[in-house]
């Protein structure tokens, strides 16, 4: 137990934790949206993220970028970033839709028991990640240095870099946009209606299948953005990158209250920071174990999470 280290590095640990937490929060939205509507843990969501993290690398690869190339100038960085984001969003969105159509819809049509969905989800997750594993020969893939981390401002020993600001701001903006979409738009009202009561919503003329597809798509889009941010922050990706982060994202969703969008944000940021503190206290090898222990504790003490499960009950 290294308390003095934790106190000394409190600032830096917090800011890196927030950046990691922002990625986790975006990732967690997919779990929370699907759970809010279908009461289903979309186990394959981690692979939605994984394919996004490869999609942007492939696009950057088209422009001849690899881990050794120099950082391009500002305008091309912005252009490349947008292209990468677009590729990741499209691929992740399509993957999420594909999983829903192939793995979940046939089961829903048969009114399969809830655990059957989880089992197919695991199958889909294993299939996608292992196929990527075979194709990449299980090697890590390095990310081109699009953004060199540089200090923007320094408070005490807390160095805040441009990348951290980009990640946190982008996550907050996406959260805000999604929150407005769910709470204000017509489609968002459909989502909330199905979350409250699927059969009544269907009787009121909401196209249930379309709403469910939309929910998967939205989760996929957010995971795509998270994937690009992850690539830039961590610098490498691998066929099992989605899995561990997926468990963390799920933990974050449960921590904030699964089914609750703002809960996912709160849970993500909190988890990112807590993980860093735990790693500083007990050593970095326990970073992932910390999130599992936290998950178990939350489920035992307060299974509805900090803000409660409430996609359906969100204010109109």
């Amino acid at each position: 137990m290294n308390f003095s280290g934790l106190i000394q590095d409190f600032g830096p640990l917090t800011i890196t934790g927030l950046a990691q937490g922002a990625i986790i929060a975006l990732f967690a939205l997919g779990y929370t949206l699907v759970y809010g509507v279908l009461r289903l843990i979309n186990f394959a969501h981690s692979e939605v993220f994984l394919l996004g993290s490869y999609a942007c690398l492939i696009v950057w690869g088209f422009f001849g970028l690899d881990q050794n190339s120099a950082t391009p100038n500002v305008f091309s960085v912005i252009g490349l970033l947008l292209l990468g984001l677009m590729a990741a969003i499209v691929i992740s969105g399509l993957t999420a839709l594909g999983v829903e159509l192939v793995a979940y819809r046939p089961l829903r049509r048969r009114n399969a028991p809830p655990l059957a969905f989880l089992i197919t989800a695991i199958g889909a997750s294993l299939f996608i990640s292992e196929t990527v594993g075979v194709i990449t020969k299980r090697n890590i893939k390095a990310v081109p240095p699009l953004i060199r981390p540089a200090d923007v401002f320094v408070i005490g020993n807390m160095h805040v870099t441009n990348l951290q600001i980009l990640i946190i701001v982008l996550a907050l903006v996406m959260m805000f946009v999604l929150d407005r979409f769910i709470n204000r738009s017509r489609l968002g009202r459909g989502i909330r209606a199905v979350a409250q009561n699927p059969d009544s919503a269907a009787l009121m003329g909401v196209n249930k299948s379309r709403v469910i597809a939309l929910v998967f798509l939205l989760g996929g889009l957010m995971a795509g953005i998270a994937a690009v941010m992850y690539d830039l922050k961590i610098g490498v990706t691998r066929f099992d990158a989605g899995f561990l982060l997926g468990i963390e994202a799920f933990t974050a969703a449960v921590l904030g209250g699964i089914g609750n969008l703002r809960g996912a944000l709160l849970g993500g940021l909190l988890l990112g920071v807590l993980q860093n503190y735990a790693a500083s206290l007990f050593g970095t090898q326990w970073l992932h174990a910390a999130s599992f222990v936290l998950l178990v504790l939350i489920l035992l003490v307060r299974p509805t999470g900090l803000l409660g499960e409430s996609l359906g009950r969100a204010r109109a």
Binding site: A103, I122, F127
Partner: peptide, 11 residues
């Protein structure tokens, strides 16, 4: 990968 696909198909 094969067993992942088999799980989906069986289910």
């Amino acid at each position: 990968a094969i067993f992942g696909a088999i799980i989906i198909l069986i289910m």
